[in-house]
Amino acid sequence: MKIGVVGCGGRMGRILVSAIAAAEGCEIAGGTEAPLSPLLGQDVGAQAGLAPLGIAVGDDAQALFRAVDVVVDFTAPDATARHAGLAAEMSVPLIAGTTGLAANEQKAVEDAARKVAIVQAANMSVGVNLLLGLTEETAARLGDDYDIEILEMHHRHKVDAPSGTALALGRAAAKGRGVELDAVAKRVRDGHTGPRRAGDIGFATLRGGDVAGEHTVIFATEASRIEIVHKAISRSVFAGGALRAALWLDGKPPGLYSMRDVLGLG
């Protein structure tokens, strides 16, 4: 499968280029950067720290779309909106990993998805998406007799708590139970808390060292407990998911898909 990487010189772009080059059945068929980028004309492989691939970094996204089976986009919101338009126009599926899209940019992606298959996900990690899907399913299945708690740990530099992924897991659990997270979230416990309120979804936050990110969802009832855990080890974790999405997209009808669709988690 021929894959194009827009924004191939960014931090995400370089990781994607390496992952695609190493994956069986996949081939890097082009890379772009913004006009005026100092990377233009350099070898796509070499600039990502690989052996040269014999393809120069270009600035013509349209030409890139013409040359590939699927495009992977981890760039900036305005660029992603434009790329979605090109994907629709040229019938080339797109994987959109860019976050922070404004309403009009998101609408551009959704409009494009009426004409071409697009996978969009704020977090492409296979493991995190698996956790999100199974948390919702388990919360629905196990019912209210199980107390749900979400524990996360991240490196000492992280400034917000709970992490975005922890909150997403909380929303998945709440959805499984058919409630709104805001109505049941217990984000802080300190002092005389009283007994745990039935139906609460509790959060606990740990910070320290260089932990890349760990999340545990706990379902606890009398005398037994189930835990589902995800531990990120490297920052390349999203690339494996993007690759799976690329292979999955082959031949899919137009539509806006999530990583849960890609992983078959319904």
Binding site: L131, H230, A232
Partner: peptide, 20 residues
Amino acid sequence: IFAGDDEVVEVAYRSTDPAI
């Protein structure tokens, strides 16, 4: 434990009472 190159997924179960 499912250990990949970039991430690990685990699922665990504990029980403390054989009455179950």
